[in-house]
């Protein structure tokens, strides 16, 4: 979406991309999108971003602009508010299509936002996405709260390994911000 060039070259189209995406859970109805623009009109992020347009994302997938969309960092600024899903007259799960594209983008480009690498690291170490400081744990006691339950970081790390996340972490470079 952020590309200034609006020219589409035939050789950059992957005619099978839309079928590939439509097979994935959550993106099944992608081809029913008739480009009405409701998702973009009602998207709170589109209101404040010059680049982010869910309607355009749906069209790019339908056209087969695979490399372009998978390397577009604006995929990462959807807040997952799900307004687009609730408003789409064609019942396209727009936000889920975006999630599918994000997942695929990490594999395809070996890039992910730094924040996810940090959260994943904390999660595998502690069971929580944030490292909860000792002072917080002591303050729980002072506030009369029960101690935090013991977590099982070994099982969490196993989940990461089995589902392929660990490999993604090893293979991926990171970027910080998306403007």
């Amino acid at each position: 979406m952020s590309q200034t060039s609006q020219v589409i070259k035939a050789e950059e189209l992957d005619p099978k991309f839309k079928y590939e995406i439509s097979k994935i859970h959550g993106a099944e109805k992608l081809m029913l999108c008739f480009q009405c623009g409701t998702c973009t009109a009602d998207c709170p992020v589109s209101r404040y971003s010059e680049f982010y347009r869910p309607r355009k994302i749906a069209r790019m997938v339908q056209l087969g602009l695979k490399d372009r969309i998978l390397s577009d960092k604006h995929l990462w600024i959807c807040t997952t508010c799900y307004t687009c899903i609730d408003h789409c007259p064609q019942d396209v799960d727009v936000a889920h299509v975006i999630r599918v594209l994000r997942n695929m983008s990490v594999k395809h480009t070996n890039l992910m936002p730094l924040v996810y690498k940090e959260l994943a690291g904390n999660l595998m170490k502690s069971g929580f996405v944030y490292m909860i400081p000792e002072s917080r744990i002591r303050r729980r006691e002072q506030a009369g709260l029960p101690p935090l339950p013991k977590t099982k970081p070994d099982e969490v790390a196993k989940v990461f390994e089995l589902t392929g996340f660990t490999k993604l972490l090893e293979n991926s470079e990171t970027f910080e911000k998306v403007e």
Binding site: R99, L123, P149, T151, K152, G164, F165
Partner: peptide
């Protein structure tokens, strides 16, 4: 009742890997 041995709900990892 305190929930034992829980972990993060999983939501923050969805953008990177749905199965995780």
């Amino acid at each position: 009742v305190e929930m034992p041995e829980y972990n993060c709900c999983g939501f923050p990892m969805d953008p990177v890997n749905h199965d995780t």
